[in-house]
Design a protein around this nucleic acid. Structure first.
Length: 454
RNA sequence: GUGGAUGUAGCUCAAUUGGUUAGAGCAUCGGGUUGUGGUCCCGAGGGUUGCGGGUUCGAUUCCCGUCAUCCACCCCA
């Protein structure tokens, strides 16, 4: 009976694992140098935890099950609810701001397609307990920092920043009643993703009239916070001296991001609204600047989520970045370093004493020498390994010719071969990439500093 | 959940109008060059042609069904 991997899942053979580790090491490095601490939670939670955040219909997209005690559980499709639960549990004792990151394995029961699988990893950066726009700015900076770390430049990606506060205020000013806001925001999120006619159709179905739709389109095409205020005054939606909620905050964000030194990486784009209901302020998505308009990360401010999950009202913001689209993009753009697939071993230890007797040699003597040489190989290997140096040897070293062992050393991607001379006192160090060899190195000297051997 | 495309060795692909024992490269394994590798030479293993049925003297090839994968839609945390 042959069973294959479940669709939408991936097997990480060593080659794929190296890429995965390379990405995740970069995520962790960037997180830590930006002052974030790592956390994780269980891979499954009560179904209600996810339903509370996103509604009961979400269950169809979850892998859920009932345990033997009758509990309704689900494998996590995202980690933010877990984060909120964990923070809520200790909210009164955690020093703020809480700057945490995680790289959870997540599952969603959807049909796989390009860039979307049923199991994946997602890097999450969150700042909890800080209402200042500085926190939003820092998250965006961390995101850019990660892009750079992975070799993606301003020519490869761009962060598009919108504001739910500004958008909501604009909708109110053009006459959209409060109770309709929740159903209209997801429609605005579609603007850049569907053809114009389809967008107009959706907007009409949501209860907007032609004039409102025209206003919305013009608003969504505005390039900056300043332009919003001008547009509102120009169309007599506000008077000159009034304060428009959200606009000042967005202006601050623009200024702070400039101070962070990442001006080339972002643009204001009110077409970015995000589909989720719980976003409350600044929202953003990272796009591939090339061919497609696919998003490889997204996030924003969610000031109500902890309260929804039974905690106090505490401000929070953050973003998530999946490994699947990122991996595809890095591959397509040739950003994956070549040496990921090479040089796994520092040393490969070799016994030059073959068990094959040459003409006129005593076969017993030759065999004994080969065994003695093999023992020296293992002794040397353990010495090097105990010093933390990646070292291996050929299982056939108790008698196979030197050439075979060198072939194996090369095949295993070793940087250097260590040939233990029959005198038992010295070694020859051969650099397998250049072919140069240094003979007569005393074993004692070599072991004192294996890294310096050449 | 819907639609389209594709299923031959581990991978990439061959196989004449439907016609012997389904081939090749790479990869894997073994051997050779008798103390110096990668880049040389020889050999081997590996396929119920996704699965099931039908047409036919004969099916990898034609037809039907089914399963799987990929792509797109729906949805997007």
């Amino acid at each position: 009976m042959k069973i294959q991997a479940v669709k939408g899942t991936r097997d990480f053979y060593p080659q794929e694992m190296r890429l995965r580790n390379w990405i995740m090491d970069a995520w962790r490095r960037v997180s830590i140098r930006n002052g974030f601490e790592e956390y994780d939670g269980p891979i499954f939670e009560y179904l209600d935890l996810f339903a509370a955040k996103s509604g009961p219909e979400i269950a169809s997209q979850l892998f859920n099950f009932t345990d033997r005690g009758g509990r309704n559980l689900a494998i996590r499709p995202e980690i933010t609810p877990t984060l909120a639960r964990m923070v809520n549990a200790k909210i009164n004792s955690l020093p703020r701001p809480i700057k945490w990151f995680s790289m959870p394995r997540l599952c969603r029961a959807e049909n796989p397609q390009k860039g979307r699988l049923r199991e994946f990893f997602q890097w999450n950066i969150d700042v909890i307990g800080e209402n200042s726009v500085l926190a939003d700015a820092e998250c965006i900076y961390v995101c850019v920092d990660a892009m750079r770390e992975l070799g993606l430049t301003k020519d490869d990606v761009q962060i598009r920043i919108g504001s739910r506060a500004v958008t909501t205020e604009f909708l109110k000013l053009i006459g959209v009643p409060d109770e309709k806001l929740d159903s209209i925001l997801p429609v605005l999120d579609k603007r850049a993703k569907v053809p114009d006619e389809a967008f107009v159709e959706m907007a009409k179905n949501a209860g907007l009239d032609d004039k409102q739709i025209k206003h919305i389109c013009e608003f969504q095409d505005l390039p900056a916070a300043d332009a919003v205020k001008e547009y509102m005054i120009q169309h007599a939606l506000v008077t000159g001296g009034g304060v428009v909620p959200g606009v000042g905050e967005l202006q601050q964000l623009e200024e702070i991001l400039a101070v962070f030194g990442i001006r080339d990486y972002w643009a204001i784009d009110f077409k970015v609204v995000r589909g989720l209901a719980y976003y409350t302020g600044i929202v953003y998505e990272v796009f591939d600047k090339g061919q497609s308009m696919r998003a490889l990360a997204g996030g924003g401010r969610y000031d109500n989520l902890l309260e929804v999950l039974g905690g106090p009202k505490v401000g929070a913001c953050g973003f998530g970045m999946g490994d699947v689209v990122l991996g595809i993009m890095l591959e397509e753009k040739g950003k994956i370093p070549k040496d990921l697939i090479e040089q796994r071993l520092d040393f490969f230890v070799i016994n030059p004493d073959s068990a094959r007797p040459k003409d006129g040699q005593d076969s017993n003597q030759v065999a004994n020498n080969a065994i003695a040489g093999g023992r020296r190989v293992i002794e040397m290997v353990t010495q090097l390994r105990s010093r933390g140096v990646a070292t291996d040897f050929d299982y056939s070293c108790f008698g196979m010719p030197l050439g075979k062992q060198l072939k194996e050393a090369n095949r295993r991607g070793a940087a250097k071969a260590v040939i233990i001379q029959p005198d038992g006192q010295t070694v020859s160090i051969k650099d397998l990439s250049t072919g140069s060899q240094k003979d007569g190195v005393p074993i004692k000297d070599f072991l004192e500093n294996p890294g310096r051997a050449s």
